[in-house]
Each structure stands twice: as C-alpha cells, then as structure tokens.
Amino acid sequence: MTRPTDTRARRRRRIAEAVWRIAAEQGLDAASMRRIAAEAGVSLRVVQYHFDSKHALLADALRLLHEENERLARARIRYDMTDPRGLLRGLLDEFLPLDDQRAFALRVFEAYYARSLTDPSLAAVFLSAEQPLERLVADIIEAGRAAGSAAPGIDRRHEADLLVAGATGLGVDVLHGRRSLADARAVLDYHLARIFPADAASQPGG
C-alpha cells in the first residue's frame, strides 16, 4: 500500500521537476505558480497545497536538484584519495555538460544564478556561504600534498577556489558554444598538471 508520505513526496518531486524544465528552457522569470502547475500537470491549488509560497517552491526545487546531482555524481566518481589527481579530475567533470543530464542541470543552475542577482532571498539559498565544493577540492589537494604528488608551496584553498570557479565558467562556455568540451578539459588538465606535477609526469605525454 502506498503511504500518504510517499504520495506527497512524489507530487512535490513532480512539481520540482516542472520548475527545472521551465528554468532550463525559459529562465526562472517564466516560472509563475500557474505556469509551474500547468507544466506539472496539476492544478494551481495542488501546487499551493504543497508549497505555501513561490520562494519555498523554488528553494525546495533547488534542494532536490542538488540531491539528485550529488547522487548521480557519487555513482560516476570513483572516490579514491590515493589518486587525488584522478579523483579531482572526476569531480571537475561534473561541472561540464558531458551528457544531457549534466547539461540540463547546468542550465537550471545558471537560471537560478541569474535570478539570485536580483532576488536576495533566493540568493541566500542558492549562494551557500559554506562553500562545500571548494572545501572538498582543497581537501583533495591536501591529500596530494601529503602523498608528495602536489607541487610544493601551493595554497590549497586558493587553488580550490580557482578550480571550482574555472570549471563552472568553462561549463557555461561549452553550453554557449564558446568552447568545445575538448578545450574545456584541456584547460582543466593544464591546471591539474600544475598542481600535481609528479602525477602529470607519469601520464602519457607527460
């Protein structure tokens, strides 16, 4: 028997997915409550029953997308701290539109970013002050330093900030057709070789 909580979760997910599609195709400015309801195939009253405000809906849709991306990334990335360069390479690939799912997610996140520039309440949700990705990248670089494969004297936090910001920007450039995927990956490989010169020397052509 289907529990009411399961039905509620599926309905909220269905509505959130409607937000994603509108955001990816038209931007969040087009995501009115009525438009979201129509896209989800439910009544406006159903949307209002599950979400007491548009802000709550947008925030929850963003949270669900983050959870979905993290689940898929964990399945794709081999988490091996004994190979920090390989681990970091896999993590940075998640910022690039390497397939339809990652391209779609990147478009949604860019729609949220654009809206956050003029919506302080959404910015407070979208722009996390905790910077978990930067901390993870910094920890991976530190693992490489401890293993002797990272370049001496580098600042792991600054390098992490540069890699995350750079990978995000490169992914958007690929979406816009300003760069090819090969170009974007070459740029990331260049920086990884600078951070992990010992590992780079063992790579083909290194």
Rank of each mutant, 00 (worst) to 15 (best):
L175Y: 12
L162G: 06
A9Y: 02
F95R: 14
A146E: 01
D100Q: 13
L57M: 09
F126R: 09
V108Q: 06
F95W: 03
V174C: 04
H55C: 12
R8C: 10
I140F: 03
E159T: 15
R8P: 06
E94Q: 12
M33S: 04
L62E: 02
L87S: 08
H66A: 13
A146Q: 12
G169V: 04
T82V: 11
A200H: 11
D189I: 03
E110C: 07
R21G: 08
S53N: 05
R194S: 14
V47A: 08
Y113S: 04
I22K: 13
L87C: 12
L117D: 09
S43N: 10
A24K: 06
V19I: 14
A198P: 00
G148I: 01
V137I: 06
A201S: 10
A18Q: 04
F196H: 12
A160W: 00
L170A: 13
Y49C: 01
R13D: 09
L44S: 07
M33N: 05
S128I: 03
L87G: 05
G169L: 09
V125S: 11
A75V: 13
V47Q: 00
H191N: 07
R145K: 08
A23M: 08
I22T: 10
L175S: 11
S128L: 06
T82M: 12
F196Q: 07
S202M: 10
A38S: 02
L64S: 06
L88F: 06
S121N: 14
L122I: 07
L58G: 15
D189N: 13
Y49A: 15
R11F: 10
I77A: 05
V47K: 02
A73F: 08
A31T: 03
L162F: 14
A56T: 03
S121W: 15
D189M: 08
A75G: 02
D60Y: 08
P97N: 10
G153H: 05
G86V: 00
A114F: 13
Q26Y: 09
D52S: 13
R107K: 13
Y79G: 09
E67A: 15
D29G: 06
A103F: 09
A30V: 03
E110I: 06
L181F: 08
I77N: 13
R179T: 01
G171Y: 00
R11G: 10
S121Q: 15
R63E: 15
Y49R: 05
S202D: 07
A56W: 01
R11C: 07
A151E: 02
L87F: 14
L96A: 06
L57R: 05
Q203G: 13
A147H: 12
L91G: 01
A75C: 04
R115T: 13
G205P: 02
I15F: 05
R35P: 03
A59L: 04
Q101L: 13
H191I: 10
F104N: 11
L92M: 11
V46K: 02
R12P: 02
R157L: 03
G166I: 00
A151H: 08
T118L: 14
L127H: 11
L170G: 09
D29L: 06
A182Q: 12
H50C: 11
G144R: 00
R194L: 14
A200S: 09
M33W: 01
D83A: 15
E142L: 06
S32L: 02
A124N: 11
I22E: 00
M81Y: 10
L96N: 01
A18T: 05
V42W: 04
A103I: 02
R21T: 14
P197F: 08
I22L: 07
